Computed example of a mutant assay.
Amino acid sequence: MDLAAAQEIDSTLDEWAWELSGQVPAPAEPRPDEADRQVRDYVKDVIRDRAAAERELERLKGYKSALTEQAP
């Protein structure tokens, strides 16, 4: 490749970069296997959060029952 061809390619890439600089890139659609993984991870997170919330609720109910037993 000669110098003129390299400069032409560089110039073209600079033009493309300038033309595209104002556009916001959109995220690519995930592949089916990646989409499945994302859904599985989301479901695991929801189940884990719900289990944690239920444990916290049971803990608070224990405090409430302990307080009501001590009340005169």
Rank of each mutant, 00 (worst) to 15 (best):
28 A>V: 00
69 E>Y: 08
67 L>H: 03
44 K>G: 12
27 P>F: 14
27 P>R: 15
63 Y>A: 03
42 Y>S: 07
45 D>A: 05
45 D>K: 03
22 G>N: 01
20 L>P: 07
60 L>C: 05
48 R>Q: 12
71 A>L: 05
43 V>T: 07
29 E>S: 11
51 A>I: 01
39 V>N: 04
43 V>I: 10
48 R>F: 12
27 P>D: 15
70 Q>T: 04
49 D>W: 04
48 R>T: 10
63 Y>M: 04
61 K>F: 05
5 A>T: 12
69 E>L: 11
20 L>D: 09
12 T>M: 09
7 Q>T: 04
50 R>Y: 08
64 K>Y: 06
43 V>L: 15
28 A>P: 03
32 P>S: 11
48 R>A: 12
15 E>F: 12
1 M>C: 05
34 E>W: 02
61 K>A: 08
62 G>R: 04
2 D>R: 09
58 E>T: 14
29 E>T: 10
17 A>W: 11
14 D>F: 09
20 L>G: 07
21 S>F: 00
40 R>I: 01
66 A>H: 04
70 Q>W: 02
25 P>N: 04
49 D>T: 11
7 Q>Y: 04
9 I>A: 14
18 W>V: 00
11 S>T: 13
59 R>S: 11
66 A>V: 03
50 R>N: 13
37 R>F: 07
8 E>K: 11
12 T>C: 07
55 R>M: 09
52 A>N: 06
29 E>Q: 11
27 P>G: 14
30 P>S: 06
17 A>Q: 14
30 P>G: 08
7 Q>R: 14
4 A>R: 15
24 V>A: 05
27 P>Q: 15
25 P>L: 14
46 V>F: 00
4 A>F: 12
23 Q>V: 01
24 V>G: 01
42 Y>W: 11
41 D>V: 11
29 E>N: 05
72 P>F: 01
66 A>N: 08
37 R>A: 12
32 P>C: 07
19 E>R: 13
26 A>S: 08
58 E>N: 13
36 D>G: 02
12 T>Y: 09
1 M>K: 14
2 D>G: 15
7 Q>E: 11
30 P>V: 09
53 A>D: 14
35 A>M: 02
71 A>M: 05
60 L>Q: 07
39 V>H: 13
51 A>T: 05
24 V>N: 03
16 W>I: 10
44 K>C: 09
4 A>V: 10
14 D>R: 15
67 L>C: 03
30 P>C: 06
38 Q>P: 09
29 E>H: 06
54 E>V: 05
44 K>H: 09
67 L>D: 02
13 L>A: 10
58 E>G: 14
4 A>C: 04
37 R>G: 03
61 K>T: 08
65 S>W: 01
15 E>V: 04
19 E>L: 13
25 P>E: 10
13 L>Y: 03
72 P>E: 09
16 W>A: 08
4 A>W: 13
25 P>M: 06
6 A>Y: 00
28 A>D: 08
14 D>K: 15
45 D>R: 03
10 D>R: 11
56 E>K: 08
27 P>I: 12
16 W>C: 06
38 Q>S: 09
12 T>W: 03
9 I>T: 12
23 Q>E: 10
19 E>H: 09
59 R>P: 02
2 D>Y: 05
57 L>S: 14
23 Q>L: 10
68 T>W: 00
62 G>T: 02
24 V>D: 07
47 I>Y: 04
49 D>N: 15
44 K>T: 13
14 D>N: 11
65 S>F: 01
